[in-house]
Design a protein around this nucleic acid. Structure first.
Lengths: 260, 260
DNA sequence: CGGCGAATTGACGGACGTCAACTGCTGTGG
DNA sequence: CCACAGCAGTTGACGTCCGTCAATTCGCCG
């Protein structure tokens, strides 16, 4: 199955797999395989039965929903993240389409093996429950963000989150195409342009994919970030797997590594 | 703790508790208590630590989110439903405020006991994982509904779902105040009125809380209901705990009995 | 150099929120 | 028994936000 040792370790370091016994982990990876996909590949289509749990090792993938010939992006995933967990657990049809938006390395684990692992290995089952709880809470935040904030406010908060995620410097690089960002934020590309234009008054300067926040305080006054929507309090780096307060540890990892 | 036998049975019949061992179930209910609340009582406020898993036995409760002095209803619960499960599992702060909107009987189970139960009783832990997976998928549907459909379309679909939930007859009773419904659908009360007015062209007649769908086919053409948004396929009654296809069984119960 | 797609800009219309006035119901108290 | 206050719901006017369509610019790759 052609998988580098280092990649395996990165998967194992995810909270969900860290709890699994060696035996469980081996039975999962034994039946799984790592595959490389070019950008724009559809991995799984809405409504299809789900045969695998996916783990994004390298690249970027997008989860999208469709209705009436309209599409919307529900999440953009970055390594290392699992996705489609909920459908795997329930052996149900997918509610979202999964597509690569960059060349990506993706580990595919047998859904059946995951379910068996949950039954045989109580610690793994517990870890899955906690993972799903975190996913759920991520979506609650998404709904609140969507229903309570206007377009410009969503963008402002996105920028501030992304800023700290990239180290807190005044300038950040948009990690995906603007059309993808627009769909994620629930607007059209045209409207995203206008939203950026509006933020100019708040000290946001855009040059291609490079955004600099010249007056953080002013932007912050518009964005009104809220830990109950935008994520765990003290933030901090998402690098390194160092365990902290165990309560917040898995939660802090929310923006990474989870989207069921 | 003053709890009727019949109520206990109804709790035990929930998929999540049906899987628990007698011992686990007893340890949960032993430390729990049933309480009656008048309408409009706040059970739990956004941001607070969560000490209990709540089970709505009788009445109605509402989960809402707040930001910047704006409120939105994330879900309206009807018996028998558990709520705030995800926060309990992670021992995290609540992301939503819970309020009664009718006189309600609510069972409160120690969050600590629930977490211990998950660790000690693997079958219960699994059931919680499945419950959370169902909750997660419910929210995915909510986000798709919100981002992909316009106000009138959301209302049309709500009416059709509620119609089948109430037996499929041409006329249904709105189960809550219109202002609550408006907030749930992501609009203002004024706009809900107008949305109802628009649906008159599609054969929807409103008289107070009583709505009759005179031309189901026409309304259906507007609503374009989709099993990947509006719920499990063949629908069917939500009464009786009779197990069906085990895959869809827990999913079908989605609109009842779950909202973590 | 030419072409393609992403991004931007402008013009326009529709959907939605806000404010205000009005209706109808209900419960309270004189 | 009636008067009145209070609240849910409705309706209208108005402004804003946002989506759509079209034209243009920019950058990248062939």
């Amino acid at each position: 199955m052609a998988m580098r040792e280092a990649d395996l370790d990165r998967v194992r370091a995810l909270p969900m797999f860290a709890a699994a016994s060696d035996r469980t982990f081996q039975s999962l990876t034994a039946g799984g395989f790592l595959q490389k996909f070019p950008a724009g590949t559809t991995l799984l289509t809405e409504g299809d039965p789900v045969d695998f749990l996916y783990v994004l090792i390298e690249g970027q993938a997008e989860l999208q929903g469709t209705w009436n010939d309209k599409e919307t992006t529900l999440a953009v995933l970055r390594p290392v993240s699992t996705f489609i967990l909920a459908a795997v657990v329930l052996d149900a049809d997918a509610l979202m389409t999964a597509r690569t938006i960059e060349r990506s390395d993706i580990l595919m684990l047998s859904a059946e093996a995951v379910r068996r692992g949950m039954e045989d290995d109580a610690a793994f089952g517990l870890a899955v429950a906690r993972e799903l709880a975190g996913c759920y809470r991520g979506l609650v935040r998404t709904v609140k963000n969507q229903k309570l904030r206007g377009g410009a406010e969503r963008l402002a908060n996105y920028l501030m989150v992304e800023q700290t995620r990239q180290g807190g410097g005044p300038t950040l690089i948009l990690p995906h195409e603007k059309r993808v960002l627009a769909s994620l934020l629930g607007m059209t590309p045209e409207n995203l342009s206008r939203a950026f234009a509006n933020l100019a008054d708040y000290g946001v300067v855009v040059q291609g994919p490079e955004v600099t926040i010249a007056r953080p305080v002013v932007l912050n006054r518009l964005a009104k970030p809220d830990p109950l929507i935008d994520g765990a309090g003290p933030a901090g780096d998402l690098l390194a797997g160092a365990a902290e307060l165990e309560r917040t540890a898995s939660e802090a990892r929310r923006s990474q590594a989870r989207f069921g």
